[in-house]
Amino acid sequence: MKFNYTTLLLLVLCFISSHNVLANEEDLVLKDQQGELFELSKIVGNKPVYLKFWATWCKPCMQQMPHFQHAYEQYGDTIDTIAINIDLNDGPAAVAAVKNRFNLTMPIMTDDTGKVAQHYQFIGTPFHVLLDKTGKVIFQGHEADKALDNTLRLLSHDGVVEKTRLLDEANKQAAIALDIPTQGLKAVLFTATWCDWYLADTRPEMAKNCVAAQQQMNTLAKQGVDSEARISQLWTDQAAVTEYKEKFNVSHPLTIDYGNDLFINNEISKVPTLLVYKDGKIINRITDFTSSVNLQNTP
């Protein structure tokens, strides 16, 4: 696939210095490895905070783990640090394996609702977010580079940094709501443009499942079932959607879920996921596409 990770990364590395994000909402909650809930408000605004969003199947995330552990060892006393698994096509066993592989000692938590990632304008892993001691977000980025290291160093001294480096919010687009009919069937596939090829090496069975899901959606559309797909905004732009549509000969509508609002509202933690609606209500949630999906005889 021509649209690779490097291309996607270049799309999101656009920074500005005039955007402020405050993180003091009470509903920003993570889950630790013991399943206990942790409110970010308990640490935000006390001293600097370093949040790193990652996934076990993300190759650059694994490459950056030694750097992340080193940063925690160097600044853990002055900067609260949390490794946040995004909980997309992941699980506790895989997270524990990464922890053991890299001897990670910082707190590891899961964003099982997706709301924390959404709040910090998460686009794709790896994603670094730094907050100063007042709770102001002063850094967002994907690379474990000199800019990140310099910001960590400055935060460790005074807890504040004058110059911010943030993602450009001007390019953000609003999500389009789903139109679910009050009568009849509708099939909505939640998937990603990259899951068939990016996961081919790290999670081959998941990649095959992504291909099968889209193939079965094509069949449903040909059968006359009202069908559409919502694409995760992670690592995606309209060019990737167009390429995906051509690759799989997709005839039904494909729309990027900007902000991942629909993914969050429908508790989608695995791609692909097919939601089947009847008379405006969800009657089935399908994540395994090894067997054919047949909706023609749905009661």
Rank of each mutant, 00 (worst) to 15 (best):
S269G: 14
L131F: 03
R285F: 02
H142E: 10
I286F: 02
M109V: 02
T182W: 00
H67L: 14
D168I: 06
L152H: 07
E25W: 08
L131Y: 09
F38G: 11
A240K: 03
Y5T: 04
Q215A: 01
P253S: 04
N249Q: 15
S17A: 12
P60A: 03
L10A: 15
H19E: 13
P48Y: 07
I282P: 07
K146E: 10
L37A: 13
K31M: 10
S227W: 04
P107A: 07
L13N: 15
K208G: 13
L166Y: 02
T242Q: 10
G135K: 01
K172L: 13
T255K: 14
A239Q: 10
F15D: 10
L295G: 07
S227A: 04
Q63Y: 11
Q118D: 08
E73A: 12
G159H: 07
L189W: 09
Q173I: 11
E26Y: 10
Q183N: 11
P60I: 08
P66A: 07
M217E: 11
N209Y: 08
E169K: 15
E228C: 11
L11D: 15
L10R: 14
I264K: 05
Q223Y: 00
N150F: 03
L13G: 14
E143K: 13
M109E: 05
I283A: 05
G259E: 11
C58A: 10
E162P: 06
E267F: 07
V44H: 11
S17V: 15
D77P: 01
L88C: 14
L13A: 13
F139L: 00
T151R: 02
T182V: 02
I282C: 09
G141P: 02
W54N: 08
N20P: 11
N24S: 01
T81P: 00
Q223I: 05
F248C: 03
V29E: 01
W54L: 02
V137Q: 03
A55N: 01
D90P: 00
W197H: 12
N209C: 05
A71Y: 09
L28N: 07
V21A: 08
M217R: 04
I16H: 14
W235E: 07
T219N: 01
T242E: 05
L152Q: 06
C14P: 06
S269N: 12
W194R: 06
V44N: 10
L11E: 14
D261N: 03
A175F: 05
E243M: 08
D87H: 12
L185A: 08
D149V: 11
N171C: 14
K99M: 03
K281A: 00
F248L: 04
P126Y: 04
L37G: 13
N260Q: 00
V95Q: 04
N85A: 08
L199I: 08
A177H: 08
I79A: 13
A94N: 14
D257H: 05
L10W: 14
D288H: 07
V44F: 11
T7F: 14
W194Y: 06
D179Y: 12
V98F: 15
Q140A: 10
R101T: 09
P126E: 07
E73N: 12
P253I: 10
L22G: 03
R203Y: 06
A97E: 15
V137R: 05
T191L: 00
